[in-house]
Design a protein around this nucleic acid. Structure first.
Length: 678
DNA sequence: GTAGGGTTAG
């Protein structure tokens, strides 16, 4: 008896199978009836298992087939491709060629896709030649896949030349170009290509719009992103979870977290990636608390955090100096996920920014395969902890590997040298970077050098370096010059730098604070008043300084003269007692650092209740004797607090670690690791 | 018409 009106019925019956059991029944029947040996039939069986994601079953059948035709090969290859097993796709492809089976359009398409995701340009080009030989040169599927190979390998010029030669282009070919440009940092070209595509009367779908959204994210152009978003709504272009997630990402990357959350909250379906996009957006924009809250919230929605969301959470911990949580996330990563390079670098960064340089180093030493990112991370770790010599030594060790230092490595190195005041070394390595390594200095490198020179009092040299820049100097270099001028009382150059920074960033409250402090240090109160007036006129408020301290696994923040804390009385008591002892040891308040025109005793009072002192006192009050304290400050640490903390570390016999916006200070036994150079 | 273009981080 025949179960199937064969062979069309077999195909239809296989297609209606919903689970593995029902396929297995047909599978058994095929063996019994001899259809299993028929190569126009058995491919269907492999394809059916593959479609269900039952790749092991597909493979088992495939391996047992007595006769394997193109259908069986394609089915097996497509099954692997769907599972993301690109290496297997390639193995099968080569095996198939060896068996003398002639690939068809689908085979070439899938094989090229595999090469693209493996970034295997060479094999991909070889396969293209084979496709041409087999007569698929004009096939739009094969052509687009070849295009995609170049795009994925960042070879947009080659991609363009393939694109121009294509006799027929469809939406996918155009999208490949748009996305390729967007992802290789050529956002303008991406947008131009989309315009050309529209010129050919081609209607866009969600995928091509996604390429444009990425381009906007890269350009930081929220306005255009918003208009693309609006266009999709008006045209009723379907937005699936991928497109919506990319909108969240775009808004977050352009700093519009309100819009990012609005899109996120409206999403009907979310996945781990959508959560991660928002979490990383919060972390990247400095909203550490929100990022960590979302990490908890995503779990209450049943999503297990992945590596990306955990890395973002680590970033959030780094920002606020939340060592305890950072450590437990580290533990979680080790237990649950494969711990390697990517997370390794983030964990190194977290430990170092949370004050544990030794933990950072221990982890770095344990990484089996270090890439330049991990080297950069450890070099800059030593930098922010003020150990410039060790940073150089690590840099030299890196040169002994086959890794090449890049612009980021030099940024880490130069900033390390700047924090340690190693001026001559800085000049040496800067020249070597340009002459030997042929790396064009970027804004950041100049900023490090200007900082290095100006901080060391060589303000004129710093100015000359800026004047010799080939590119237009940006905000960072002028800020560095201005701070140097403030420290070394260089009013003429300082005034010039002040007008530059105000010209470049007229909306930045930090800039106004800097300029106002510069004039206050020079006791030019009329100028200070002038700056304040401008701030008032254009409605800019100064960023309040605050300090955060971790006590028994919780973070507590203090702002200056913060009386709201329940333990305020005790905190003041500790500070008063300490101040008496400090004075007896020779501490004199640096009232010249109070940048207001006030009476002397008011200045002393203001200094005594700076946020970092409140945080230290709170820490002393609530931790066991001998416990190390970690304070994180959102601005630079104040000079008087720096002096006072040295005394406090000796009086209470504790290690006090203060992280300010730029670097670390380790206070112990009355001295600071920075050697008072900062 | 089974195949090609897409999301998060360091």
């Amino acid at each position: 008896m025949r179960l199937f009106p064969w062979p069309k019925g077999l195909k239809r019956t296989l297609f209606t199978c919903k689970d593995r059991e029902s396929v297995s029944k047909i599978h058994a029947f095929m063996i019994v009836s001899g259809l299993f040996s028929d190569k126009t039939c058995n491919g269907q069986l492999v394809a059916t298992y593959g479609r269900m994601g039952e790749i092991e079953w597909a493979r088992k059948v495939f391996d047992k087939l007595p006769q394997r035709g193109i259908d069986a090969w394609n089915a097996m290859i497509i099954a692997c491709s769907r599972k993301g097993c690109q290496a297997e796709v390639m193995d099968l492809y080569h095996e198939m060629i060896l068996e003398g089976v002639r690939p068809d359009s689908s085979t070439f398409t899938v094989a090229l896709k595999a090469c693209a995701s493996l970034s295997d340009l060479e094999t991909g080009e070889e396969i293209w030649h084979q496709a041409v030989e087999c007569g698929y040169e004009c096939d739009v599927f094969v052509g687009s896949s070849f295009l995609n190979l170049y795009a994925k390998c960042g070879k947009m010029e080659e991609a363009l030349s393939v694109f121009n030669k294509m006799p027929r282009r469809d939406l996918v070919s155009w999208t490949t170009m748009v996305t390729g440009f967007a992802q290789s940092g050529h956002a303008h070209e991406a947008i131009n290509f989309y315009r050309m595509m529209r010129g050919e009367k081609m209607e866009g779908d969600g995928v091509v719009m996604l390429g444009l959204i990425q381009a906007c994210a890269n350009l930081g152009d929220a306005k255009m992103g918003l208009s693309i978003h609006g266009y999709m709504i008006r045209r009723e272009i379907h937005m699936d979870v991928v497109v919506q997630t990319s909108l969240v990402d775009m808004y977050a990357k352009t700093g519009h977290l309100d819009l990012a959350s609005r899109v996120f909250n409206k999403m009907r379906y979310r996945n781990v990636i959508s959560w991660s996009a928002l979490i990383s957006g919060c972390a990247q924009n400095g909203f550490a608390g929100d990022a960590l809250e979302l990490l908890i919230k995503m779990q209450s929605f049943g999503f297990k955090p992945d590596l990306v969301s955990l890395v973002s959470a680590l970033l959030a911990c780094s920002q606020v100096g939340f060592l305890k949580l950072g450590r437990s996330i580290h533990g979680y990563i080790v237990r649950r996920l494969d711990f390697e390079r990517v997370s390794g670098t983030a964990v190194i960064d977290m430990y170092s920014k949370c004050g544990s340089l030794s933990c950072a180093r221990a982890l770095f030493d344990r990484i089996s395969s270090r890439d330049s990112i991990s080297w950069n991370a450890i070099i800059s770790s030593y930098g922010i902890h003020g150990q410039g010599k060790e940073a150089i030594s690590l840099f030299l060790q890196m040169m002994n590997t086959n890794l090449k230092p890049d612009h980021a490595t030099f940024t880490s190195l130069l900033s390390a040298l700047s924090h340690s005041g190693l001026v001559e070394e800085g000049r040496y390595w800067f020249d070597l970077m340009v002459c030997e390594f042929k790396i064009q200095p970027r804004e950041k490198h100049y900023a490090c050098m200007v900082d290095l020179l100006a901080r060391a009092g060589r303000v004129e040299e710093a100015r000359d370096l800026i004047n010799a820049m080939t590119s237009e100097p940006g905000i960072a270099v002028w800020v560095a010059l201005l701070s140097g001028c403030q420290n070394h009382r260089k009013s003429l150059i300082g005034e010039m730098a002040a007008s530059k920074v105000l010209e470049l960033n007229p909306d930045d409250p930090g800039i106004y604070a800097l300029v106002s402090n510069f004039f206050a240090t020079a006791r030019r109160w009329d100028q200070v008043a002038g700056v304040r007036k401008v701030m008032k006129q254009i409605g800019i408020k100064k960023v309040p300084g605050y300090s955060v301290v971790e006590v028994s696994g919780k973070l507590t923040a203090f702002i200056m003269e913060d009386k709201s804390h329940p333990q305020y009385e005790q905190i003041v008591g500790i500070l008063e007692k300490l101040e008496k002892e400090m004075r007896a040891m020779g501490y004199i308040p640096k009232t010249e650092l109070v940048l207001h025109d006030l009476a002397e005793e008011v200045k002393v009072r203001m200094l005594s209740y700076h946020s970092e002192r409140l945080a230290i006192a709170f820490g002393l009050l609530n931790t066991a004797p001998g416990t190390r304290l970690l304070i994180t400050k959102n601005l630079r640490v104040c000079g008087d607090c720096h002096e006072a903390t040295k005394f406090i570390s000796k009086i209470v016999d504790r290690e006090i670690v203060v992280r300010d916006v730029k670097r670390f200070h380790h206070f112990k036994d009355g001295i600071c690791s920075c050697g008072d150079y900062w």
